[in-house]
């Protein structure tokens, strides 16, 4: 138990880095994912094809492999990063963007067809239909699944700890080495800090889901 209190500074540093990774990659993934979803429903065949290909491949590749690529293979190919955080953000956002794209796409599909037809019949173009009518409604229904994706992102960021980034899991690995006698307590401490992020997010998703269900 003492081991936890002794290591509080490391936990705190790791906690902040985990949050940092999750927020930065989350924002990038949201933007890239929404663009991918828009490409997926666009009239331009090349964009549709690319988006489909990207989403299929990224969703079926283990995150560890993507991390391995960005943290170990890329530097060997001459693309070096000052900090491994950059590699982690690249890996997390490429992976998560595919899931965001799928969630947004199913959100687009959940908007009643009449909405699109109405927008089209008053003469809106594809960009207007999507940007002014469909996406604002789709994003609302898509918020609970998106929060779940963000929870997964927070948990996934732990893989970065094994690829030289000192976030919560990275410190967990380090501290279990230095506190060989209190391994269990150290890891319970790490778990606590993860739950500190994931449980409130889960409650939030649950709450919003209920709200949306009432509104419909």
């Amino acid at each position: 138990m003492d081991a936890i209190f002794e290591s509080l500074p490391q936990y705190w540093d790791g906690f902040l880095r985990t949050l940092f990774l999750a927020v930065i990659s989350g924002v990038i993934a949201l933007i890239v994912g929404t663009i991918l979803a828009a490409m997926r429903v666009s009239p331009v065949a090349a964009l549709r094809g690319f988006s489909t290909f990207y989403v299929e491949v990224a969703r079926n590749t283990p995150l560890t492999i993507i991390f391995f690529f960005s943290a170990i293979v890329l530097p060997r190919l001459g693309i070096k990063f000052e900090q491994f955080e950059v590699a982690a953000v690249i890996a997390l956002s490429t992976y998560t963007a595919a899931f965001v794209a799928e969630a947004v796409r199913s959100g687009v599909n959940s908007v009643p067809v009449g909405q699109a037809e109405a927008a089209r019949s008053i003469g809106m173009t594809f960009t207007q239909v999507l940007g002014l009518v469909i996406l604002p409604q789709a994003l609302r229904t898509v918020v609970p699944p998106l929060i779940n994706i963000m929870i997964a992102l927070v948990k996934n960021s732990s893989v970065a700890g094994a690829f030289f980034v000192m976030e919560l899991f990275g410190y967990g690995l380090q501290l279990t080495n230095s506190h060989g006698d209190a391994v269990m307590w150290i890891l319970i401490g790490v778990a606590f800090f993860y739950l500190l992020i994931t449980v409130p997010l889960g409650l939030l998703a649950h709450f919003i889901e209920k709200k949306v269900a009432i509104a419909r």
Binding site: K155, N156, S158, V159, G161, A162, F169, V190, Y194, L195
Partner: peptide
């Protein structure tokens, strides 16, 4: 269990 990273 669901809120915990699998690696951990």
């Amino acid at each position: 269990l669901r809120g915990m990273p699998v690696v951990l």
